[in-house]
Design a protein around this nucleic acid. Structure first.
Length: 342
DNA sequence: CATCCACTGGAAGGCGAGGGCA
DNA sequence: TGCCCTCGCCTTCCAGTGGATG
Protein backbone atom coordinates (compact mmCIF):
# COMPACT_ATOMS: atom_id res chain seq x y z
CA UNK A 1 0.00 0.00 0.00
CA UNK A 2 2.77 2.48 0.86
CA UNK A 3 4.60 3.51 -2.30
CA UNK A 4 6.76 6.28 -0.90
CA UNK A 5 7.08 6.47 2.86
CA UNK A 6 9.20 9.60 2.82
CA UNK A 7 6.17 11.67 1.92
CA UNK A 8 4.58 10.79 5.25
CA UNK A 9 7.59 11.70 7.33
CA UNK A 10 7.56 14.72 9.53
CA UNK A 11 10.43 16.49 7.82
CA UNK A 12 9.20 15.99 4.28
CA UNK A 13 9.11 19.15 2.20
CA UNK A 14 6.54 18.98 -0.60
CA UNK A 15 7.39 20.25 -4.06
CA UNK A 16 4.32 22.43 -3.98
CA UNK A 17 2.28 23.68 -1.09
CA UNK A 18 -1.42 23.52 -0.50
CA UNK A 19 -3.29 26.43 1.11
CA UNK A 20 -0.35 28.55 2.17
CA UNK A 21 0.25 30.75 -0.86
CA UNK A 22 -0.08 34.08 0.94
CA UNK A 23 2.38 33.04 3.60
CA UNK A 24 4.87 31.79 1.01
CA UNK A 25 4.58 35.01 -0.93
CA UNK A 26 5.11 37.19 2.11
CA UNK A 27 8.15 35.22 3.20
CA UNK A 28 9.74 35.18 -0.23
CA UNK A 29 9.16 38.92 -0.61
CA UNK A 30 10.92 39.44 2.69
CA UNK A 31 13.87 37.38 1.54
CA UNK A 32 13.98 38.89 -1.91
CA UNK A 33 16.85 41.34 -1.24
CA UNK A 34 19.11 38.27 -1.20
CA UNK A 35 18.62 37.98 -4.93
CA UNK A 36 20.25 41.33 -5.62
CA UNK A 37 22.82 41.21 -2.87
CA UNK A 38 20.89 43.14 -0.23
CA UNK A 39 20.17 42.23 3.36
CA UNK A 40 16.61 41.23 4.19
CA UNK A 41 14.85 42.11 7.44
CA UNK A 42 14.58 39.27 9.90
CA UNK A 43 11.48 37.16 9.29
CA UNK A 44 9.22 35.69 11.94
CA UNK A 45 6.80 32.83 11.45
CA UNK A 46 4.20 32.64 14.22
CA UNK A 47 1.44 30.12 14.78
CA UNK A 48 0.43 27.01 16.73
CA UNK A 49 2.01 23.60 16.12
CA UNK A 50 1.24 21.67 12.98
CA UNK A 51 0.23 24.62 10.81
CA UNK A 52 3.13 24.30 8.40
CA UNK A 53 5.56 26.94 9.64
CA UNK A 54 8.64 24.76 9.33
CA UNK A 55 7.44 23.27 6.11
CA UNK A 56 6.82 26.68 4.54
CA UNK A 57 10.19 28.00 5.68
CA UNK A 58 12.01 25.09 4.12
CA UNK A 59 9.91 25.16 0.99
CA UNK A 60 10.39 28.88 0.43
CA UNK A 61 14.12 28.67 0.94
CA UNK A 62 14.41 25.69 -1.36
CA UNK A 63 12.72 27.80 -4.03
CA UNK A 64 15.00 30.72 -3.32
CA UNK A 65 18.09 28.54 -3.59
CA UNK A 66 17.00 27.34 -6.97
CA UNK A 67 16.77 30.91 -8.14
CA UNK A 68 19.90 32.06 -6.32
CA UNK A 69 22.22 29.10 -5.72
CA UNK A 70 24.83 31.13 -3.81
CA UNK A 71 22.48 31.38 -0.84
CA UNK A 72 23.28 28.91 1.92
CA UNK A 73 20.65 27.69 4.32
CA UNK A 74 21.20 26.46 7.87
CA UNK A 75 18.34 24.82 9.69
CA UNK A 76 18.66 24.86 13.47
CA UNK A 77 16.14 23.34 15.82
CA UNK A 78 16.50 25.26 19.08
CA UNK A 79 14.81 22.47 20.95
CA UNK A 80 18.00 20.47 20.61
CA UNK A 81 20.47 23.29 20.03
CA UNK A 82 19.57 25.64 22.84
CA UNK A 83 22.94 27.17 23.76
CA UNK A 84 24.90 29.86 22.00
CA UNK A 85 27.68 27.41 21.28
CA UNK A 86 25.40 24.83 19.70
CA UNK A 87 23.56 27.32 17.53
CA UNK A 88 26.78 28.75 16.15
CA UNK A 89 28.13 25.25 15.69
CA UNK A 90 25.05 24.10 13.77
CA UNK A 91 25.32 27.05 11.43
CA UNK A 92 28.99 26.35 10.78
CA UNK A 93 28.16 22.72 10.21
CA UNK A 94 25.53 23.63 7.64
CA UNK A 95 28.08 25.61 5.67
CA UNK A 96 30.79 22.96 6.05
CA UNK A 97 33.04 24.96 8.30
CA UNK A 98 32.67 22.90 11.46
CA UNK A 99 35.76 20.74 10.94
CA UNK A 100 37.97 20.58 14.02
CA UNK A 101 35.57 22.49 16.18
CA UNK A 102 35.45 20.80 19.58
CA UNK A 103 33.67 21.49 22.76
CA UNK A 104 36.71 23.28 24.09
CA UNK A 105 36.68 25.69 21.16
CA UNK A 106 35.79 29.15 22.48
CA UNK A 107 32.47 30.55 21.30
CA UNK A 108 34.21 33.66 20.04
CA UNK A 109 36.25 31.48 17.72
CA UNK A 110 33.02 30.06 16.26
CA UNK A 111 31.73 33.58 15.80
CA UNK A 112 34.94 34.69 14.11
CA UNK A 113 34.78 31.80 11.71
CA UNK A 114 31.24 32.71 10.77
CA UNK A 115 32.11 36.33 10.23
CA UNK A 116 34.91 35.32 7.89
CA UNK A 117 32.43 33.38 5.75
CA UNK A 118 30.95 36.52 4.29
CA UNK A 119 31.40 35.70 0.61
CA UNK A 120 27.96 34.09 0.42
CA UNK A 121 24.75 35.01 2.21
CA UNK A 122 23.51 32.54 4.83
CA UNK A 123 19.88 32.19 5.84
CA UNK A 124 19.51 30.66 9.28
CA UNK A 125 16.17 29.07 10.11
CA UNK A 126 15.81 28.99 13.87
CA UNK A 127 12.96 26.63 14.57
CA UNK A 128 11.26 26.67 17.99
CA UNK A 129 13.35 29.70 18.79
CA UNK A 130 11.35 30.21 22.00
CA UNK A 131 13.28 27.21 23.36
CA UNK A 132 16.57 29.00 22.97
CA UNK A 133 18.16 29.54 26.38
CA UNK A 134 20.91 31.93 25.40
CA UNK A 135 19.45 34.70 23.31
CA UNK A 136 22.95 36.05 22.91
CA UNK A 137 23.05 33.67 19.96
CA UNK A 138 20.46 35.86 18.22
CA UNK A 139 22.53 38.92 18.94
CA UNK A 140 25.54 37.19 17.40
CA UNK A 141 23.69 36.27 14.26
CA UNK A 142 22.31 39.76 13.93
CA UNK A 143 25.79 41.25 14.08
CA UNK A 144 26.79 39.31 10.99
CA UNK A 145 25.71 41.30 7.95
CA UNK A 146 25.67 38.30 5.62
CA UNK A 147 23.40 36.26 7.92
CA UNK A 148 19.62 36.55 7.68
CA UNK A 149 17.59 34.90 10.40
CA UNK A 150 14.17 33.30 9.94
CA UNK A 151 12.67 32.74 13.37
CA UNK A 152 9.89 30.26 14.04
CA UNK A 153 7.87 30.30 17.25
CA UNK A 154 4.37 29.79 18.59
CA UNK A 155 3.55 33.17 20.03
CA UNK A 156 5.00 36.58 19.46
CA UNK A 157 4.41 38.03 22.92
CA UNK A 158 6.08 35.19 24.80
CA UNK A 159 8.97 35.12 22.37
CA UNK A 160 9.76 38.80 22.71
CA UNK A 161 9.38 38.60 26.47
CA UNK A 162 12.22 36.08 26.55
CA UNK A 163 14.60 38.40 24.69
CA UNK A 164 16.91 40.79 26.45
CA UNK A 165 16.63 44.46 25.48
CA UNK A 166 19.50 44.39 23.04
CA UNK A 167 17.99 41.57 21.03
CA UNK A 168 14.44 42.87 21.32
CA UNK A 169 15.19 46.27 19.86
CA UNK A 170 17.19 44.83 17.02
CA UNK A 171 14.62 42.28 15.97
CA UNK A 172 11.64 44.52 16.44
CA UNK A 173 11.62 45.58 12.82
CA UNK A 174 11.27 42.11 11.34
CA UNK A 175 8.45 40.91 9.09
CA UNK A 176 5.78 38.81 10.77
CA UNK A 177 4.12 35.96 8.92
CA UNK A 178 1.19 34.57 10.84
CA UNK A 179 -0.27 31.11 10.44
CA UNK A 180 -3.78 30.12 11.51
CA UNK A 181 -5.01 26.65 12.25
CA UNK A 182 -6.11 24.67 9.25
CA UNK A 183 -9.82 24.09 8.82
CA UNK A 184 -11.08 20.57 8.18
CA UNK A 185 -11.39 21.23 4.44
CA UNK A 186 -7.88 22.56 4.15
CA UNK A 187 -6.38 19.75 6.15
CA UNK A 188 -8.32 17.20 4.13
CA UNK A 189 -6.84 18.67 0.96
CA UNK A 190 -3.34 18.48 2.39
CA UNK A 191 -3.83 14.87 3.42
CA UNK A 192 -5.25 14.02 -0.01
CA UNK A 193 -2.18 15.50 -1.63
CA UNK A 194 0.16 13.50 0.59
CA UNK A 195 -1.87 10.31 0.20
CA UNK A 196 -1.78 10.58 -3.59
CA UNK A 197 2.03 10.64 -3.52
CA UNK A 198 2.64 8.21 -0.68
CA UNK A 199 0.04 5.52 -1.22
CA UNK A 200 -1.30 3.41 -4.01
CA UNK A 201 -4.36 4.89 -5.69
CA UNK A 202 -7.69 4.12 -4.02
CA UNK A 203 -6.01 3.26 -0.74
CA UNK A 204 -7.96 5.79 1.21
CA UNK A 205 -11.29 7.49 0.60
CA UNK A 206 -12.13 11.14 0.94
CA UNK A 207 -14.50 10.63 3.84
CA UNK A 208 -11.74 8.86 5.72
CA UNK A 209 -9.35 11.71 5.10
CA UNK A 210 -12.02 13.97 6.56
CA UNK A 211 -12.23 11.78 9.63
CA UNK A 212 -8.47 12.07 10.04
CA UNK A 213 -8.58 15.82 9.56
CA UNK A 214 -11.29 16.07 12.19
CA UNK A 215 -9.40 13.96 14.67
CA UNK A 216 -6.28 16.04 14.15
CA UNK A 217 -8.20 19.25 14.88
CA UNK A 218 -6.19 21.49 12.60
CA UNK A 219 -2.79 20.03 13.35
CA UNK A 220 -1.20 18.75 10.16
CA UNK A 221 1.58 16.98 12.00
CA UNK A 222 -0.97 14.90 13.90
CA UNK A 223 -3.05 14.37 10.77
CA UNK A 224 -0.12 13.07 8.75
CA UNK A 225 0.89 10.93 11.72
CA UNK A 226 -2.53 9.32 11.77
CA UNK A 227 -2.41 8.70 8.03
CA UNK A 228 1.03 7.15 8.40
CA UNK A 229 0.11 4.80 11.20
CA UNK A 230 -3.15 3.84 9.48
CA UNK A 231 -1.28 2.98 6.29
CA UNK A 232 1.28 0.95 8.22
CA UNK A 233 -1.46 -0.93 10.05
CA UNK A 234 -3.25 -1.69 6.80
CA UNK A 235 0.03 -2.86 5.30
CA UNK A 236 0.67 -5.18 8.22
CA UNK A 237 -2.80 -6.62 7.94
CA UNK A 238 -2.35 -7.11 4.21
CA UNK A 239 -5.37 -4.94 3.44
CA UNK A 240 -5.74 -3.13 0.13
CA UNK A 241 -7.24 -0.02 1.58
CA UNK A 242 -7.64 1.77 4.87
CA UNK A 243 -10.91 0.80 6.50
CA UNK A 244 -12.86 2.67 9.13
CA UNK A 245 -11.69 0.14 11.74
CA UNK A 246 -8.03 0.58 10.88
CA UNK A 247 -8.51 4.27 11.19
CA UNK A 248 -10.16 4.03 14.56
CA UNK A 249 -7.21 2.07 15.86
CA UNK A 250 -4.68 4.40 14.28
CA UNK A 251 -5.95 7.63 15.78
CA UNK A 252 -4.86 6.99 19.38
CA UNK A 253 -1.59 5.50 18.04
CA UNK A 254 -0.54 8.68 16.39
CA UNK A 255 -1.51 10.88 19.29
CA UNK A 256 0.53 8.93 21.79
CA UNK A 257 3.45 8.38 19.42
CA UNK A 258 4.32 12.05 19.45
CA UNK A 259 4.15 12.25 23.23
CA UNK A 260 6.02 8.99 23.68
CA UNK A 261 8.86 10.30 21.57
CA UNK A 262 9.30 13.21 23.96
CA UNK A 263 9.09 10.98 27.02
CA UNK A 264 11.77 8.70 25.59
CA UNK A 265 14.06 11.70 25.39
CA UNK A 266 13.90 12.27 29.15
CA UNK A 267 16.82 11.28 31.32
CA UNK A 268 16.23 8.80 34.15
CA UNK A 269 15.67 11.37 36.90
CA UNK A 270 13.18 13.32 34.81
CA UNK A 271 11.45 10.08 34.05
CA UNK A 272 11.02 9.34 37.75
CA UNK A 273 9.47 12.77 38.26
CA UNK A 274 7.16 12.16 35.34
CA UNK A 275 6.07 8.80 36.72
CA UNK A 276 5.42 10.20 40.18
CA UNK A 277 3.27 12.96 38.71
CA UNK A 278 1.50 10.48 36.47
CA UNK A 279 0.64 8.17 39.36
CA UNK A 280 -0.41 10.95 41.68
CA UNK A 281 -2.55 12.69 39.06
CA UNK A 282 -1.83 16.01 40.71
CA UNK A 283 0.87 16.65 43.28
CA UNK A 284 2.41 19.45 45.33
CA UNK A 285 6.10 20.21 44.97
CA UNK A 286 7.04 19.11 48.49
CA UNK A 287 5.41 15.70 48.10
CA UNK A 288 6.85 15.34 44.63
CA UNK A 289 10.41 15.95 45.81
CA UNK A 290 9.94 13.60 48.76
CA UNK A 291 8.57 10.78 46.64
CA UNK A 292 11.34 11.29 44.10
CA UNK A 293 13.97 11.01 46.84
CA UNK A 294 12.39 7.80 48.02
CA UNK A 295 12.68 6.21 44.61
CA UNK A 296 16.13 7.24 43.54
CA UNK A 297 19.51 6.03 44.78
CA UNK A 298 21.36 9.32 44.50
CA UNK A 299 18.83 12.11 44.37
CA UNK A 300 19.65 15.45 42.77
CA UNK A 301 19.08 18.66 44.70
CA UNK A 302 15.71 20.38 44.68
CA UNK A 303 17.14 23.17 42.57
CA UNK A 304 18.06 20.69 39.85
CA UNK A 305 14.63 19.09 40.06
CA UNK A 306 13.10 22.51 39.48
CA UNK A 307 15.20 22.85 36.37
CA UNK A 308 14.00 19.44 35.19
CA UNK A 309 10.41 20.39 35.87
CA UNK A 310 10.57 23.67 33.97
CA UNK A 311 12.11 21.79 31.08
CA UNK A 312 9.31 19.25 31.11
CA UNK A 313 6.78 22.06 31.17
CA UNK A 314 8.49 23.44 28.06
CA UNK A 315 8.21 20.03 26.46
CA UNK A 316 4.50 20.22 27.13
CA UNK A 317 4.57 16.96 29.06
CA UNK A 318 3.45 18.37 32.38
CA UNK A 319 1.88 21.59 33.49
CA UNK A 320 2.39 23.69 36.57
CA UNK A 321 -0.87 24.93 38.04
CA UNK A 322 -0.48 28.18 39.94
CA UNK A 323 2.57 30.16 40.93
CA UNK A 324 4.83 29.85 43.95
CA UNK A 325 3.17 28.57 47.04
CA UNK A 326 0.23 26.31 46.39
CA UNK A 327 1.52 25.26 42.99
CA UNK A 328 0.78 21.75 41.81
CA UNK A 329 2.07 19.67 38.92
CA UNK A 330 0.11 17.38 36.68
CA UNK A 331 0.32 15.78 33.26
CA UNK A 332 -0.83 17.92 30.39
CA UNK A 333 -3.71 15.78 29.22
CA UNK A 334 -4.57 14.52 32.64
CA UNK A 335 -3.56 11.02 33.72
CA UNK A 336 -4.23 8.45 31.04
CA UNK A 337 -2.87 4.96 30.60
CA UNK A 338 -2.50 4.23 26.93
CA UNK A 339 -0.31 1.56 25.51
CA UNK A 340 -0.27 2.41 21.85
CA UNK A 341 3.15 1.43 20.57
CA UNK A 342 4.99 3.23 17.87
C1' DC B 1 -1.35 43.04 60.99
C1' DA B 2 3.28 40.82 61.55
C1' DT B 3 5.65 36.79 61.00
C1' DC B 4 6.50 32.38 59.20
C1' DC B 5 7.00 29.26 55.68
C1' DA B 6 6.92 26.91 51.05
C1' DC B 7 8.20 27.57 46.75
C1' DT B 8 10.45 29.71 42.64
C1' DG B 9 14.21 30.95 39.79
C1' DG B 10 18.64 34.00 39.21
C1' DA B 11 23.70 34.17 40.03
C1' DA B 12 28.02 32.29 40.85
C1' DG B 13 31.15 28.82 41.29
C1' DG B 14 32.81 23.66 41.35
C1' DC B 15 33.65 19.64 38.72
C1' DG B 16 34.52 16.12 35.16
C1' DA B 17 34.95 15.49 30.13
C1' DG B 18 37.41 16.08 26.15
C1' DG B 19 40.61 18.30 23.55
C1' DG B 20 44.95 21.66 22.54
C1' DC B 21 49.63 22.54 23.36
C1' DA B 22 54.47 22.54 25.11
C1' DT C 1 52.81 13.48 29.74
C1' DG C 2 50.93 17.15 32.42
C1' DC C 3 48.76 21.52 32.42
C1' DC C 4 45.39 24.49 30.55
C1' DC C 5 41.16 25.63 28.16
C1' DT C 6 35.91 25.77 27.63
C1' DC C 7 31.85 23.26 27.82
C1' DG C 8 27.57 21.60 30.15
C1' DC C 9 25.67 20.03 34.32
C1' DC C 10 25.06 20.48 38.91
C1' DT C 11 25.13 22.54 43.58
C1' DT C 12 25.02 26.27 46.85
C1' DC C 13 23.26 30.45 48.20
C1' DC C 14 19.80 33.71 48.22
C1' DA C 15 16.18 37.28 47.23
C1' DG C 16 11.49 37.64 46.18
C1' DT C 17 6.67 36.42 46.65
C1' DG C 18 2.38 35.52 48.60
C1' DG C 19 -0.60 32.13 51.31
C1' DA C 20 -1.01 30.47 56.18
C1' DT C 21 -0.87 31.31 60.95
C1' DG C 22 -0.92 33.51 65.42
Amino acid sequence: MIVDGRVLREDFVPSEVVHRHDEVTLLSETLEPLVYGGRPDPAFLFGPTGVGKTCIARYTLAQLCEQEPTVRVAYVNCWQEYTRFRVLYSVLEAVDRAVDVHRSTPKDELFDRLSRMDDQPIVVILDEVDQLEETAALYDLHRLPHVSPVLIANREVELFASFDDRVRSRLHAGTRVRFDRYGTDELTAILAERASKALEPESVGNSQLRTIADAASGDARVGIGILRSAARRADREGAESITAETLEAAIPDARTAIRRKTIDGLIEHQRVLYDVIDEAGEIEPGDLYAEYERRVEEPKTHRTLRNYLTKMVHYDLIEAVGERRGRTYRLVDGPGEDDGEQ
